[in-house]
Design a protein around this nucleic acid. Structure first.
Length: 267
DNA sequence: AAGGTCTCCAACCGCGCGCAG
DNA sequence: ACTGCGCGCGGTTGGAGACCT
């Protein structure tokens, strides 16, 4: 027996989401939390399949998402993690709070891949291209991952830095110019370094793992307290933040309008 | 200005895994 | 042990906008 389609193909809308649909989905999840995705479209009044709803939520509407290009530090972290994990984008994304696997995957394919090729590094194996030509190539990216024994460690400000034996020098010595900048920015970001090397789920990822806590004593509105850590709401201007009844965010909203306006102007 | 090409990214598709019955 | 369901993941596609000629 073949696998059933994830949803009824008939009457299921595809393609770009409208503001109206976003609004419905957000409203639904704010009210009910993330429950059974399969049931979400029906309950939320959407003519989408559950999968599409989940994707839209996790990749675009989720509260803790960062917007905009990856920073240099994040980019370097992605490269390092890719060297260790291969194309396991969700695992990589788990180490970058506010970033989605889709976003990272896209960024990898459009930016980082090219950058590495330009630098003469194979984006798949993370080996120098010329070195690869001479050596017999083997299989999976994992085969090319640095051996644990070859990794040097140094503690800086309580953060453990690692680099490979076959590098000619430590990270600081090894890099120059842009690379040095990247390394410095990573090393100065204790949070990134911790999430990179420790096997821990970044705090931000845990914030929205489960149903939002609707019974918040502090605001008395039955709404989660998001002012501090949910800049995503600021992006809600696309469909009007007041549509959600979040008038309390007027101050934040005005800041956001400035910010997004600057973004649009490329500042 | 117009047409062609490239780039980027949101969204889709199909598969694998875990779980429940 | 088997089957079906739901979810999540990774690869791929398509369209809009940017850029080039």
């Amino acid at each position: 027996m073949g696998r059933q389609p994830c949803c009824d193909k008939l009457g299921v809308k595809k393609g770009p989401w409208t503001a109206e649909e976003d609004k419905k989905l957000i409203n639904f999840i704010l009210t009910n939390g993330q429950c059974c995705w399969r049931a979400v479209p029906k309950l939320a009044g959407l003519r989408r399949c559950g999968k599409s709803c989940r994707l839209r939520w996790t990749n675009y509407l989720r509260p803790d998402l960062k917007r905009g290009l990856l920073t240099q530090a994040e980019e370097q972290l992605v490269i390092d993690l890719h060297a260790r994990l291969g194309n396991r984008w969700s695992k990589i994304a788990a180490r970058l709070p506010g970033r989605t696997d889709n976003e990272i995957k896209n960024h990898w394919n459009t930016h980082i891949k090219k950058k590495l090729l330009k630098m003469g590094i194979d984006p798949v194996t993370h080996e120098p291209l010329n070195k690869q030509l001479s050596s017999h190539d083997s299989s999976s990216p994992a085969d090319h991952l640095p051996q644990v024994d070859n990794i040097h460690q140094v503690k800086e400000n309580g953060v453990t830095l690692n680099w490979e034996e076959n590098s000619t020098s430590s990270p600081a010595e090894n890099s120059s110019g842009e690379e040095s900048l990247l390394m410095n920015s990573i090393c100065s970001d204790v949070y990134l370094m911790n999430s990179m090397w420790l096997d821990e789920t970044p705090l931000m990822d845990t914030l929205w793992d489960s149903t939002p806590k609707l019974e918040n004593e502090n605001n008395g509105m039955g709404l989660p307290m998001w002012e501090d850590n949910c800049p995503w709401l600021l992006d809600c201007q696309d469909f009007g933040i007041h549509d959600f009844g979040f008038n309390c965010f007027s101050q934040i909203e005005s800041n956001a309008l400035q910010t997004t306006d600057m973004d649009r102007k490329g500042l």
